[in-house]
Design a protein around this nucleic acid. Structure first.
Lengths: 124, 124
DNA sequence: ATTAATAACAGTAATTATTACTAATTTTGT
DNA sequence: ACAAAATTAGTAATAATTACTGTTATTAAT
């Protein structure tokens, strides 16, 4: 049974209306302003829990630590291989992408992640 | 200047004709049969180098350690969230996926990774 | 409102995955 | 064969994340 907590609420609110895809460390530093005693472990635990609950999204690019995104509507991400920043892309493949990919596959596809890499405007 | 080495050759050969997307640790154990003294660091270094050279592919799913793939033709991967195994999918979005995604984006897209998640046949 | 049960916490230690360092070895162009 | 430099094995260090533990906060039931 899940009990609500001020810390988890703060972690989630930190991600709302924010489009810079912060790392756990960045979320920690941000939430620390309001909750100076919050521990990094609490931030990690809540980011994972919120992700499991589907309230936020985890972005694992393989370059650097995981990022988190308060926007759960499916969308693509771009990571600059030079500055490592992650930005949203407006591009979106069609809505039944999962269903199409599941065609002829015996397992059950539930979600996907699409990441693009290259150089951002500033770095190229 | 890149000099060839038996170890790097062995790492690459280990991935050829292999479709289980092994981790660095798995490659290490496998190559160890032929080169009992090879060190894990050497495997990591060569996997990274081969990836940079475009001779193999790194797969970062965010669940567990990175996987490696000797098949470099673009294709999608599926990871079972239960058993963590990674398999190839036959599904492939159209060839100019990168170009399409680059439409209206100021940066330069060079590559992409598409990963699907769910339960594999055995786990569902 | 108290209380009892337990989820969540802070703080810290441990683990996992990977990279960095160094002296010795291997490769390669001359 | 020789010299220069890339690569190695072995080890240490780092980065990111998870696990542990005693305390605190939340919740449901009295």
């Amino acid at each position: 049974m899940i009990k609500k907590s001020r810390q988890r609420q703060a972690v989630k609110e930190c991600l709302i209306g924010r489009y810079d895809h912060p790392t756990a460390e960045m979320v920690y530093l941000s939430v620390k302003n309001d909750y100076p005693n919050i521990s990094l472990g609490t931030v990690y635990r809540n980011l994972s829990l919120l992700t499991e609950l589907g309230e936020i999204q985890r972005i694992s690019t393989g370059i650097g630590p995981d990022r988190f995104d308060g926007e759960i509507k499916p969308h693509c991400h771009f990571q600059c291989t030079r500055c490592k920043n992650v930005v949203d892309l407006s591009f979106m493949p069609d809505a039944n992408f999962d269903a199409e990919a599941n065609n002829g596959f015996e397992g059950q596809i539930e979600s996907h992640q699409i990441q693009f890499f290259g150089l951002c405007e500033a770095c190229k």
